[in-house]
Computed example of a mutant assay.
Amino acid sequence: MDIKGSCSDQFSAVQEVFADALRNGTDVGASVAICLDGELVVDLWGGYADEARTLPWQRDTITNVWSTTKTMTALCALVLADRGELDLSAPVAKYWPEFGTAGKDHIEIRHLLSHTAGLPDWDQPMALEDLCDWEKATTLLARQSPRWDSRTTSGYHRFTHGFLIGEVIRRIYRESIGRFFADQIAAPLNADFHIGLAAEHDHRVSEVIPAPGPAPAANPRVSIPVGAYVTAQDTWSTHWRRAEIPAAGGYGNARSVAAVQSVLASGGRTSSARLLSETTCRAVFDEQSHGMDLVLGIPLRFGIGYALNAGDAPVSTPNLHTCYWGGRGGSLVVNDLDARMTIAYVMNQMSPLGLTDPRSQKLLRAAYRAVTR
């Protein structure tokens, strides 16, 4: 299987791992990118953009990256915090007054960013059309009570994360989070990532391919009722593409994910723009929770907007100041502020293994061998 793009000699092992996954069929179509000190040193893509394997994955192919989108939403909040327009320790109700009801008056912005707010889902079923209705989704969340009281215990906010943070940003910026991201982050960085996809990009979208086999069994540790559920096939709809679903509906490829997230790993600046101060970048590592996540049923350590490096976590690296998150199906982005490195992987073939997906784990290990040898 031919792959295209560029790769520095230092990271040749990453190219070999990537090529092997395409060759053996583990991947159908995919991309991997690495930025070091804000410079793109790996930019590879290959395989096919369709399940029938008739359309080549191109340089500008993009796909739905699911919850890797959350890292973009978090970055929007960090940019506003860096400008002094958002206080991460302020009550959410300071910016969104309607939120401060039903026992939520003490929930702070940092709790939204760390999945510790106790609002992991809606109290009622939410169909696809409900998730595409911003006013309905946010109004319902403003009326809910938290499902637990501890603000130091995480329970993954699968879809609510983006609506909660997005509404705060809308109240401050007077525009949607998709517009904020496009104007204030993607444009300065010239990054091809979208929260809410315009029709002009439809022709280059690779639809995600559902994971083979039955859905994984429910985790016995988890008893949080599910209000919103979306299938891979739901994301093929125009309705999903056009909506701004900032916890799971972002479109991009590894290059664009790395281009945006490398701002964090390189101390707030890339070759084209400075978006954050070093101080704000380091604020990500203010630990908010560490333990068994009430929704995912796995040990996680959360900081401000990102999961943090930890020995008991599904993603672990040699360096202390590493933060990450990934998307349903297997996409992943890792920011290492000590190595000043960002690693991004985006694919169309979904896997049920999430953060433990061997495809991303092998790429991660190869990247660290390259910078530590």
Results as ranks from 00 to 15, higher is better:
151 R>I: 04
162 G>D: 00
176 S>G: 10
236 W>P: 05
184 Q>K: 12
214 P>V: 02
153 T>E: 15
144 Q>T: 06
173 Y>M: 11
149 D>M: 12
166 G>A: 11
146 P>W: 03
203 H>G: 11
212 P>G: 00
237 S>P: 07
136 K>W: 09
135 E>I: 12
188 P>M: 05
184 Q>N: 09
197 L>H: 01
206 S>A: 15
185 I>W: 00
174 R>V: 07
199 A>I: 14
164 L>Y: 07
242 R>I: 08
142 A>D: 10
149 D>H: 15
161 H>K: 12
208 V>T: 05
223 S>Q: 13
160 T>Y: 05
124 Q>W: 11
172 I>M: 15
223 S>K: 13
167 E>C: 06
152 T>G: 13
172 I>T: 12
195 I>N: 01
131 L>R: 07
238 T>S: 14
161 H>Q: 09
165 I>N: 12
245 I>R: 01
201 H>T: 04
205 V>S: 02
139 T>C: 13
169 I>D: 09
132 C>Q: 14
152 T>M: 11
119 L>M: 03
122 W>P: 06
177 I>A: 13
237 S>M: 12
240 W>G: 02
227 G>E: 01
124 Q>T: 12
203 H>L: 09
126 M>K: 08
180 F>H: 04
149 D>W: 07
167 E>V: 09
185 I>P: 06
163 F>W: 09
212 P>R: 02
209 I>L: 03
227 G>C: 04
149 D>N: 08
176 S>N: 03
197 L>E: 06
175 E>G: 12
226 V>C: 11
140 L>W: 02
157 H>N: 05
192 D>M: 00
173 Y>D: 13
247 A>Y: 06
200 E>S: 09
129 E>A: 14
207 E>H: 14
229 Y>G: 15
194 H>T: 03
143 R>V: 11
121 D>H: 06
125 P>Q: 08
191 A>L: 02
169 I>H: 11
197 L>G: 01
167 E>I: 08
236 W>N: 14
217 A>S: 00
127 A>V: 14
209 I>K: 05
170 R>A: 10
235 T>V: 03
189 L>T: 05
188 P>N: 01
230 V>I: 14
211 A>K: 00
247 A>S: 14
232 A>W: 13
141 L>D: 02
193 F>M: 02
243 A>E: 10
202 D>C: 05
174 R>C: 05
246 P>T: 03
191 A>G: 02
